[in-house]
């Protein structure tokens, strides 16, 4: 099928949990590969050993700047891919590798791990640890519509992806503190509880309606802030939730 987009999975210093999440679309993954995307690269799933040209690169993991292969690969990814998506907390924000500080044999010099966006321009963010199969799926479907769809579909895809692109522009730092800095301190929190639901390490509780972040549990994945309706809320897309969810469901039937 000539109409498919070319997608690759680039594995930097991540745990492969992001890829497992992609695969956790189960039957939907098979449909995506049948109809919308050719997996042209992904060491865990295919035998291709060198990064080819592709439409969309899904990058998992942060980059160890003391490892030349990693640095070369991420630069090559940017050159070869039209759209670079940082998948998961490690690629977006560093996640647990923010805590790395070297000193461990057999490569004690491996000390500095940077989110992908600190080395190359990243187009779209999918935060979370692990990122969810559903958000990865939605982004894949929208990327397909953006590149291969008709005018209306392209319009929708653009609107859908906009906040995820803005998250990429926002920066490479995230943790539970963002709820304090950019929501509560900004007078925006209304106590919905989304942040607590989103946190993958149960670092957030609600005390009298407002989030409390246990900072000695937080792993810096960025899920809470991305999930918060007061980080972004794009009426033009979310109001159409019924139709969009139906479209995505339909695409994967």
């Amino acid at each position: 099928m000539a109409d498919k987009i070319k997608v690759g999975h680039v594995h930097m210093s991540g745990c492969t949990g992001c890829l497992v999440s992609l695969a956790d679309n189960y039957g939907g993954l098979l449909t995506i590969l049948d109809r919308y995307a050719d997996l042209v690269y992904g060491l865990t799933l295919a035998d291709v050993r060198h990064i080819p040209k592709m439409d969309v690169a899904l990058v998992e993991g942060s980059v160890c700047i003391q490892d030349k292969i990693s640095v070369d690969e991420i630069k090559e990814t940017r050159e070869k891919a039209a759209v670079v998506v940082a998948v998961g907390g490690c690629a977006c924000y560093g996640n647990i590798t923010r805590f790395s500080r070297g000193g461990q044999p057999n490569q004690p010099q491996h000390e500095s791990f940077l989110p992908v966006g600190d080395l190359i321009k990243v187009d779209v963010y999918i935060p979370g640890c692990a990122p969810t199969p559903q958000l990865i799926r939605n982004v894949c479907v929208m990327a397909y519509l953006l590149l291969k769809g008709n005018k209306d579909q392209q319009e929708l895809a653009k609107k859908y992806l906009t906040p995820l692109m803005q998250l990429a522009e926002r920066g490479t730092e995230a943790c539970g503190c963002d709820l304090m800095y950019d929501v509560i301190n900004q007078g925006l929190c209304m106590g919905c509880g989304s942040c607590a639901a989103a946190c993958p390490v149960r670092a957030i509780t609600h005390e009298y309606g407002k989030p409390n972040v246990n900072r000695e549990m937080c792993i810096k994945c960025g899920a809470c802030y991305a999930q918060c309706p007061r980080s972004f809320f794009n009426f033009d897309v979310i109001t159409g939730f019924e139709g969009i969810l139906e479209t995505i469901d339909g695409a994967l039937k």
Partner: peptide, 25 residues
Amino acid sequence: VGTPCQMQAVRKGQLYPAGLRDVPD
């Protein structure tokens, strides 16, 4: 059940499930 903002949170969670795996459907 919830206030309008909580409904917004639910719908955002369905369309942009950053930390809500397997919840949207």
